[in-house]
Design a binder for these strands. Structure first.
Lengths: 248, 248
DNA sequence: CGCTCGGTTGACTCGGGTCAAGGCCGGTGG
DNA sequence: CCACCGGCCTTGACCCGAGTCAACCGAGCG
């Protein structure tokens, strides 16, 4: 019972951290949100979180772990279109009353928290701030996709990898998941990185090594360290503007 | 006076064509929409339609012509993230009460129709169908971005160009802008195509020629002809699913 | 104990970028 | 009216970043 309580609370906390990074929330939100969402469910690595084309009428939030959205090219190649971090909504299809446009899959053992769409709708009705925040998250998601498009269109391998590391560092920091010394967990394989960046596994590997030799990023045993985040950001011309909402 | 009327009517028509391709609209929509929007304004090629980061509180619809959204890489390279066709909304930033995430610029002489945000809000209040349709357009826009991401990540030049031609053919057809014989206007330079697809101008040129030699696409004098749209679609594995909403 | 998966390395290839030059307009100014 | 100029398209020569193929290593696991 206590376990369920605390586990559920952790999920709500994470969601609130994410939402409040994006717009101010009024005082009643935590309680209302807690009523809308069910307890988190564990999802093993590689398990589907959202099936492509579904119509479940559920709003899903990643509580912990690591996930991604993807689409398949007919050639069999999988293109990762977005990384889903703790606090993030897994899919924004529900906003348009449309089926999920793409699948989402856990890349590491994860916990996912779910709300029925009608319960979420009444949450939003009581707490309009939440709607604003969610729409802003969707807008940021869209911008991040576009930024990655620009990466694939115009940056070389080194800049792509570095830029993505900067993005993940920034986003994880927003929800309090970066440790002392700019260290964070990155439970991805190099091949998955490649699927997101349009690079082969081999080349991702070599690029990581270059970054290590440059002293700009050390990635070992699922842990990434960025010794000089500003230097890396400037090398890859990473500007977090696209991940934030301007304060009014 | 009559000119204003008819010109304004053409804009509303185009918008309605686009919206009703995506979800059913109730009978009152045309009249309400006509009240919300002002008459179209001509925009010469290369002029800005939306300034990056603005907060104009305007909803803009492209009535005729051709436009794109873009972001700049610090290297100076411009990445085109979306093509805006007649009937399309130019920017979805207003949905999140956020500034425009990116600029939009006319690529050909165009006409843009504008609604004040509060007038648009009352249109949406009276006609909730419009909100659904707009959200679906935003969702489709997002999917198209992801599809292009997959193109840059996993397709070669021939497939990228062919796939984009298929997409434009499909979308122009949706709003009635494809002529007999699968001919449509494409007022773009090859360099602009390259900016959207992450290819150099030179290579776009060679690729177009290959498509012509294959008899799959003839592009000359701003006019594109697709002699065998199905053959091109199958070569590039173009599946328009991502541009449609499933019928309920 | 052998198998699979992820990371690492080397050798080779090739798609597409870059540079450079020439041709074809359409616009502009003398 | 013509000369000039700047976009845009086209072509050729050359080069390099990244893909592919192949092999090996270490760790976790049935």
């Amino acid at each position: 019972m206590t376990v369920r309580q605390s586990s559920s609370q952790a999920g709500i906390d994470m969601l609130l951290r994410r939402l409040s990074a994006v717009s101010a929330l009024s005082a009643g939100v935590p309680e209302c949100a807690a009523r809308a969402f069910q307890m988190g469910r564990a999802v093993p690595a590689r398990d589907l979180i959202v099936r492509d084309g579904n119509r479940e009428n559920l709003v899903k939030v990643l509580v912990s772990g690591f996930a991604c959205r993807y689409i398949y090219l007919p050639a069999g190649r999988r293109q990762i279109t977005a990384f889903i971090l703790p606090g993030d909504l897994c899919d924004f299809g529900f906003l348009a009353a449309s089926p999920a446009s793409q699948g989402a899959v856990a890349l590491a053992p994860s916990v996912v928290m779910v709300a029925e769409l009608d319960r979420f709708a009444s949450l939003v009705e009581q707490q309009p701030d939440v709607m604003t925040a969610v729409l802003r998250c969707a807008a940021i998601d869209q911008r991040a996709t576009q930024e990655r498009l620009a990466s694939l269109g115009g940056r070389n391998a080194l800049h792509r990898v570095g830029h993505l590391l900067c993005e993940l560092h920034f986003r994880l920091d927003q929800v309090g998941l970066v440790r002392e010394g700019n260290v964070f967990e990155l439970p991805l394989t190099q091949s998955e990185l490649g699927e997101a960046l349009g690079l082969s596994t081999v080349h991702v590997n070599r690029t990581i090594q270059t970054l290590r030799k440059l002293g700009l990023a050390i990635w070992r045993e699922r842990l990434v360290t960025l010794p000089h985040p500003e230097a890396l950001a400037s090398l890859c011309s990473f500007d977090p503007g696209y991940l934030e909402m301007p304060r009014d």
